[in-house]
């Protein structure tokens, strides 16, 4: 066991622990923060794997964007300070069942896959390479999905603006 593996297990444990807190905490704000740490841990895992670009994007999109959005919506809607009511027993039982089923499924997939060792060469992709791929129109280019996502985001943005406009006359 070398340092690299130890670090991996540390990160993995961190992700799992915060993930468990995220689903089990009864204060919604704590859940959001735990989710955030879990996502940050995943970014850490990417850094560990030396895929820095993905790691940075993970932080920007999930941590900087989505979780902040979630926290804001919690601030604006929920009574964030109060503890949520205890879930009914049936729900607890079924969620445990779902968890166990998911665990079984994933364990089966992993054990079947049987990871083959790849070369220990550092996996280093230039950012410019990613950029080129993103906008290339060749066979393995990503320009179509990229543009489709852009359109989706634009539509979402316009939707946001429309929603924001509606409440304007009320607030003076």
């Amino acid at each position: 066991m070398n340092a690299s593996v130890i670090i991996f297990y540390c990160i993995a444990a961190f992700i799992l622990l915060t993930g468990i807190v995220a689903v089990s905490s009864r204060k919604i704000f704590r859940s959001a923060i735990a989710l955030l740490f879990s996502l940050t841990g995943i970014a850490g895992l990417y850094f560990w794997m030396d895929v820095n670009f993905i790691a940075a994007v993970q932080i920007i999109v999930y941590v900087g964007g989505i979780v902040v959005l979630i926290i804001f919506s919690i601030f604006l809607t929920q009574k964030s300070g109060e503890e949520m009511p205890k879930p009914p027993t049936t729900r607890v039982v079924f969620s445990w069942l779902a968890v166990l089923a998911g665990l079984g499924l994933i364990y089966r997939l992993i054990s079947e896959y049987g990871f083959n060792k790849i070369s220990s060469q550092p996996f280093n992709v230039e950012v410019s390479e990613i950029g080129n791929q993103m906008l290339s129109t060749t066979e393995h280019g990503y320009v179509l999905p990229f543009e489709a996502v852009s359109m989706l985001l634009l539509a979402a943005m316009i939707g946001c603006i429309v929603i924001a406009l509606k409440s304007k006359p009320e607030t003076k």
Binding site: I33, N52, I60, V68
Partner: peptide, 27 residues
């Protein structure tokens, strides 16, 4: 790091979380 500047932008967006946590948890 090969994504130097991007890394800075990414990680600096984390600092808002600390402030949100501080502000909310103070009650």
């Amino acid at each position: 790091i090969n994504i130097g500047v991007l890394y800075v932008t990414a990680v600096s967006s984390l600092s808002v979380i600390g402030i949100l946590m501080a502000g909310w948890s103070s009650g």
